[in-house]
């Protein structure tokens, strides 16, 4: 039983960042920069708990969505003329631990099967489990490079292709990537940084009243889980409904040329590399508009999302104070 999402005090930016990714998973994940003990992993888990079950192909070891794309095995079944049945599964937060091996991430030869049957078979790895789920990496900046590379490849393609040990296999790997890091413990490679759709900064709460509320709710939850969940049930259902509605409607959000121009001029002003910044800003703003129940994209939506979408993409001179960038961003926001 997880702590209810709606009972998490404050940390609004992080919560919104996660919700937007659920509304439109193509936003490309969330990077949470912040201190320890601020509820990062609790929040991710809580959101997974709140969301409805995912629809997967019954018996598929790779969590294939019933709507496709499919893994090798599901494709074989389809080719044989089998019908794929639906199964509902609870959403999961798959954690990628530091020091994880390549085999565990990608999957590998099924040893048991090979030894007993004398045939090769693919054994799913963490990417298979993460398909249609959250993939959470704590201290992502300390993850080893070759693992980061693997993740980048799969995340970009939405597919995990394995060609090793005489195996040739692929399966869909579409996950919401959530990473957390403390920038003082080492930087993240720029390529990887850019891969995260949104980035939020999170700090421990020092306001006494809010902090008290954090403590109170946590202890109440720990002492009586069922009672606590019951008390928050309505609130949870309301949010769930709101997210699902937004998920259904976000692509109907109208975007005027004027707004598009604003976005482009913003990113030009900041002289960002590449176009990912523009695209993410647009997508996330639309998701936010939808979450707010609006029909068209407005400047206010973009204002709200700007920092999240661009803070990690700003070009920083090597020794520029990180605070300077934030200042730059807020200046830009004023232009809107």
């Amino acid at each position: 039983m997880n702590f209810p999402f709606t009972a998490i005090v404050d940390q609004e930016e992080m919560k919104l960042g996660l919700i937007l990714n659920v509304i439109d998973p193509s936003i490309g994940g969330l990077l949470i920069m912040g201190e320890k003990g601020t509820g990062k992993s609790t929040t991710v888990r809580a959101l997974a708990e709140l969301l409805p079950e995912i629809e997967v192909v019954k018996g598929c070891r790779f969590n294939c969505s019933i709507k496709g794309p499919f893994c090798v095995e599901c494709e074989e079944r389809l080719n044989r003329g089998d019908t794929l049945e639906i199964e509902f599964k609870k959403m999961e937060v798959v954690e990628l631990p530091l020091g994880v091996t390549e085999d565990r991430v990608l999957g590998t030869l099924d040893l048991e099967y090979a030894l007993t049957m004398g045939k090769r078979k693919f054994e799913p790895g963490l990417l298979a489990r993460a398909n249609q789920n959250f993939l959470y990496i704590d201290e992502v900046n300390l993850l080893e490079d070759h693992i980061v590379d693997l993740l980048l490849d799969s995340a970009a393609m939405g597919m995990n292709r394995v060609e090793r040990e005489g195996l040739s296999f692929y399966h869909p790997a579409r996950f919401i990537l959530v990473g957390s890091m403390n920038p003082e413990e080492g930087e993240l490679r720029p390529q990887f940084l850019d891969r995260f759709g949104l980035c939020v900064e999170i700090k421990a709460i020092v306001d006494k009243e809010k902090r008290k509320e954090v403590l109170k709710r946590r202890i109440q939850f720990d002492l009586d889980k069922e009672g606590f969940l019951k008390a928050w049930y309505d609130e949870q259902e309301r949010l769930k409904e709101r997210i699902l509605t937004a998920k259904r409607l976000w692509h109907e959000i109208e975007v005027s040329d004027e707004i598009l121009e604003k976005i482009v001029s913003l990113t030009a002003e900041l002289s960002l590399d590449g176009h990912r910044g523009d695209i993410v800003l647009l997508k996330a703003s639309k998701a936010y508009a939808s979450f707010e129940g609006d029909k068209e994209l407005k400047t206010s939506h973009i204002k709200k999302i700007l920092a999240m979408a661009l803070r990690h993409r700003l070009k920083r001179l090597p020794f520029e104070d990180p605070k300077e960038e934030v200042k730059k961003l807020y200046e830009i926001t004023q232009l809107l």
Binding site: G37, K208, D222
Partner: peptide, 19 residues
């Protein structure tokens, strides 16, 4: 109140402290 004040006055930031 007491627990929260205690954590704040000790200068810790992580919320785990008072929990």
């Amino acid at each position: 109140d007491y627990l929260t004040e205690r954590a704040l006055s000790e200068g810790v930031r992580t919320h785990r402290a008072e929990i």
